[in-house]
Design a protein around this nucleic acid. Structure first.
Length: 498
RNA sequence: GCGCCACUAGCUCAAUUGGCAGAGCAGGACACUCUUAAUGUCAAGGUUGAAGGUUCGAUUCCUUCGUGGCGCACCA
């Protein structure tokens, strides 16, 4: 990148940027590289604070520390100055004194802008006001910041800028950093839990020749050499189950899936899903696994199974309520959907579902459930046993062929997991796919395709298996009391600036 | 896609009925060797999201557009 980038069009560049440009030139004149190559810190702000709790006022630590970070605030007093240095762990005050640093280095310190990145060397001490600080014996300039930081007290609050320029958000908003640290810890703790249970982490294709494994509209792309249309996966399901056929009894994948659909506080076009498959298990086993997995992860990350989310206190402690869908509709909506198809259709019409005549019976029930039940489910709840029509990859319920052995987990009105006893009968699976094709012909855009290779895999025999999908982003929302999915995704999708 | 709201200095916010666009922080200059939202003095900083319209006069009223937020719809 050209060094002239900022000074180009110097006429209209703001004074603030111009001042930084001037300081950059000044550094160069003094033989200081404003974009240095290397520095070896041997500690962090957090570590210094933790290790020196017992140091008394006026006392100095025995050893020199080396740390590096960004200048966040500065308080000059002529021949002595304070500043706050921020590294990945937090902030620590540093103290620069003319007679300790010498004229050159002290002059350099005085010229620092907020946002500049420096390395410092010095002894730890406690100020008269009681703050553990580092008294600089040396200072190394590391990186010039060419753009001023947001205001030090209010920080960056404009949501658009926080999302578009997440790097700035992360610099100035510690809470945001904490959310993403927790996100990383959650994923790590999920991996650890599954490893202890004997699950193997795998990677399956993201580019799919056909989009399957969920009901959603896919993103399309194209491979030149193969001369074929490809789809970004909407779910890894069908590939993971091929691996179960192949003999991997317990597999999981944590990865991005892509759905070409709306954006809302709980929807992003790409999001992170955990999918796992356990051979010889059914959905009851998976319910046990799910409540154990989620409650232990929540407890590990937040210190308790009880969390605050919006106005709710939510307790993840297992076991969770297991509520059949028909019963949930009766309980929360006061509707009985065990009757005939026309009776259900009448209920839907009465309840204001406009296109009740166009929808299949399964979709109708889903619609009633989405509108009148899901928003009321606050504590973790398994809603179990779904209509056959809308679950083409799930096994029929053993005592009722109109239902499938499927559950969703609802917390705070959000679906965070979806699971079933996996359909492993290749003949039944073929019929289900065929039904999906009929729906597609009737105009449904979110149907499964006839995946012949998947049917072929099943024809070799897939052991009975339970499968589970968990929306990681939503789990992170709950664990961090974040009310928008955008607050747990580093770079949420936005329209480009024109 | 629909509805409501927002957009003013690098950032956070003001601006009376439509009447000279104003503060704080950041930045510049000076002073200051224990401050922590340091302090004091001085000076500077604007295409009010964009384009039109009404008006003697528009940050303010109207129209269109842009971007975002929230809600609804679709979806997990």
């Amino acid at each position: 990148m050209s060094e002239e980038t900022v000074s180009d069009g110097a006429q209209d560049i703001s004074e603030v940027l111009k001042a930084r440009q001037d300081k950059l030139e000044e550094l160069k004149k003094h033989g200081i590289n404003p974009f240095a190559y290397q520095f070896n810190p041997n500690t962090t702000a957090e570590e210094i604070l933790a290790k020196n709790q017992n140091i008394k006022e006026g006392e100095e630590g025995p050893e020199e520390v080396r740390l590096a970070g960004r200048i966040m605030t500065k308080r000059g007093h002529g021949k002595a100055s304070f500043a706050n240095l921020q590294d990945k762990s937090g902030q620590i005050q540093i103290y620069a004194k003319l007679d300790l640093l010498g004229e050159d280095k002290y002059g350099l310190f005085e010229k620092l802008d907020l946002g500049d990145i420096i390395g410092v060397i010095g002894k730890v001490f406690r100020t008269k006001r009681g703050e553990i600080s580092v008294k600089l014996s040396d200072l190394v300039f590391l990186t010039k910041s060419m753009h001023p930081l947001p205001e030090k007290w209010h920080g960056l609050t404009d949501k658009e800028m926080r999302y578009r320029q997440r790097y700035v958000d992360l610099i100035v908003n510690e809470d945001v950093r904490k959310v993403f640290i927790k996100r990383s810890q959650i994923v790590q703790s999920v991996r650890q839990f599954l490893a202890e249970k004997g699950f193997m982490e795998v990677e399956t294709p993201i580019l799919h020749p056909m989009a399957g494994g969920a009901a959603a509209r896919p993103f399309e792309t194209y491979h030149n050499t193969l001369d074929m249309k490809l789809f970004l996966r909407i779910a890894p399901e069908l590939y993971l189950k091929r691996l179960v056929v192949g003999g991997f009894d317990r597999v999981y994948e944590i990865g991005r899936v892509f759905r070409n659909e709306g954006i809302s506080f709980k929807h992003n076009p790409e999001y992170t899903m955990l999918e796992l498959y356990q051979a010889y298990a059914d959905y009851n086993d998976i319910m046990d696994l799910t409540e154990n997995l989620v409650s232990s992860v929540i407890e590990k990350i937040t210190g308790s199974t009880k969390i605050k989310f919006r106005d709710h206190e939510i307790d993840f402690k297992a076991p969770w309520r297991r509520l059949p869908l028909t019963q949930a509709l009766k309980e929360y909506a006061g509707e009985d959907i065990t009757g005939s198809e026309s009776e259900i259709r009448d209920i839907a019409k009465k309840r204001g579902i406009d296109d009740a005549d166009k929808l299949g019976i399964g979709k109708l029930i889903n619609e009633l459930y989405d509108r009148f039940v899901e928003p009321h489910l606050i504590q973790p709840t398994f809603i179990i046993d779904y209509p056959l029509e809308t679950s083409p990859l799930a096994k029929k319920k053993r005592d009722n062929p109109n239902l499938v052995e499927r559950f969703e987990v609802i917390v705070a009105g959000m679906e965070i997991a979806n699971a079933f006893s996996e359909l492993n009968d290749p003949m039944d699976q073929r019929e289900r796919f065929a039904k999906q094709l009929e729906l597609k012909k009737a105009g449904d855009e979110e149907t499964e395709s006839m995946d012949e290779d998947y049917l072929n895999a099943l024809s070799y025999g897939m052991p009975p298996a339970g499968g589970l999908g968990i929306g990681i982003d939503r789990l992170v929302m709950l664990a961090t009391d974040s009310h928008s999915i955008r607050d747990v995704i580093f770079f949420p999708h936005m329209r480009p600036i024109k």
